[in-house]
Amino acid sequence: MAWIQLTLTTKEDYGRQLGDILMANGAQAVTYRDAKDAPIFEPGPGEVPLWELTQVTGLFPAETNMTPVVSNLAKVSFLQKPLRYKTDQLEDKDWEREWMDNFKPMDFGNGLWIVPSWHQPPHADATNILLDPGMAFGTGTHPTTSMCLRWVAQTDMQDKTVVDFGCGSGILGIAALKRGARHCVGTDIDQQAILATHENAALNGVAEKFDAFLPEFAPSEPVDIVIANILAGPLQELAPTLLNYLKPGGQLALSGILARQADDVMAAYAPDVEFAPVQYVDEWCFLHGTRQK
């Protein structure tokens, strides 16, 4: 079946309302994404992830007459005048095949690869993590996850204990375990992420070494390495919690941070953590440091 895709941009306060308007005008589905490439995050049950400027897209059957739809949208008070929108024709194609073709094996250095299950690993003797894109975020494609994986690939994980805080798909904890870590505890506020982590750990043969919990049930024993790829605000608020997880001399890896937020995040961990130079990819950064006491 072919489709018409109608996309508009509005302020975050109106994103959900615009989605409802599109559905009322015949859209079969509505998706939301950031208009400025901010990070995707895990919404709570019933929540819609919105950003300062939210791009709202409605999917309409190809036979839809879009003229009255656009006319109705032009009357919406919170949308820019004259109305600015974009329409795209989506071909009738095998969307599942198209989706699968977009995900290729990814190399993160030092022999660490993320490989979708439908691909053969490019190097059979490498550290190959089998991971399919799914409901829980974290497949290595975003710069924040990529920087974390590159750090794991070049860090001595042998016999280390690890906390993967905000584990999502479990990708970072699995990477640490497959690089030699002895045990990993994952935590996430989303039950779906906990299930995805358990499934992915089993797929990669590390289930017996990877325990994942909702935060209220997670053990609190100090570990050698804490990795947290979430967002700058929570990283600052949760600094005492993350420091409690970390042994003196342990290593802390933080991401999900915009470059302009780096100083504020590091300040939240001072003077307990001595940070190495900040690493940057585009507008994102990665922080790594050692606990001093």
Rank of each mutant, 00 (worst) to 15 (best):
I225R: 07
S169C: 04
T155P: 01
L235S: 10
K178Q: 15
V206C: 12
A228K: 12
C184D: 01
I174V: 14
K178Y: 07
D211M: 03
V226C: 00
Q192E: 06
I171Y: 03
P219K: 06
A207Q: 14
P215Y: 03
G233S: 14
Q154M: 14
H183R: 15
E199I: 05
R182Y: 06
I227N: 04
A196S: 15
A239E: 08
E221F: 00
D164G: 10
N200W: 03
A196T: 11
I189W: 12
V185F: 02
A207W: 03
D188I: 08
N244L: 06
L235P: 11
A176M: 10
A201G: 12
A176C: 15
E221S: 12
V162Q: 06
H198Q: 14
A193C: 13
T241A: 10
A218D: 01
D190E: 11
D188G: 07
L238Y: 13
A202C: 02
I230C: 08
L214A: 10
G166S: 11
L177W: 05
H198M: 08
E237G: 04
T161W: 08
A201S: 12
L195P: 00
H183G: 03
D164N: 08
F217Q: 14
G170P: 07
G180C: 06
A176P: 09
I174R: 06
Q191S: 14
G180K: 03
Q158R: 15
Q192R: 14
G180Q: 09
Q236F: 05
G168K: 01
P222T: 08
D190Y: 02
Q236W: 09
S220L: 13
L235R: 11
K209M: 08
G233N: 12
V163P: 00
Q158Y: 14
G186W: 06
L238F: 13
G173H: 02
I230H: 11
G166H: 11
G233M: 07
G168V: 01
D156N: 15
Q236H: 04
I174Y: 02
R179F: 00
F217R: 13
T155W: 09
C167H: 00
A218H: 05
T187N: 01
D159H: 12
I171R: 04
Q154P: 04
T187F: 00
A153W: 09
A153E: 11
E199C: 05
V162P: 03
P222K: 05
M157C: 15
G233A: 13
P219L: 09
L195K: 08
G170F: 02
I227A: 04
D190V: 02
G180A: 09
D188Q: 09
C167I: 00
V206D: 08
F165C: 05
E199H: 12
V185P: 02
K178N: 10
S169W: 01
K160P: 01
